[in-house]
Amino acid sequence: MHELSIAQSIIEIVGQYVTRAEQEQVRRVNVRIGAMAGVVPDSLEFCFAAVIHHTPLQDAVLVMETVPFCVRCHACGQTTESEPGIALCPACGSADTDIVSGTELQVVSIDVDEASGGGA
């Protein structure tokens, strides 16, 4: 639902690292998305494609690394992947846990094709 504004924010951040001309050389935009970040990957991919259409970034592909939702348990000491959002330790059932991953929503890096200067 709000993937459109997220796609726009991603592009805005990318724009701070490369000039407009250099944006044509961007091949991949690498992002990290936690399982509980509230983002639907398919929808973000669709919105990203829509937002870059007819812009210098139009040859870029959004590459999404998804991060599982994991909790660390203070009772048994284990770090375990859990159902997104469920705070109970899957190993021992304790509620005394911290989220260690799964809420990420980050722009990681971009891959730029330096060599391309007019087709292969």
Binding site: I13, Y17, V107, S109, V112, E114
Partner: peptide, 14 residues
Amino acid sequence: MSVITIERKVLEKN
């Protein structure tokens, strides 16, 4: 191909 590291939160402005 070169990689430019960004590592920024998407919603940092908000």
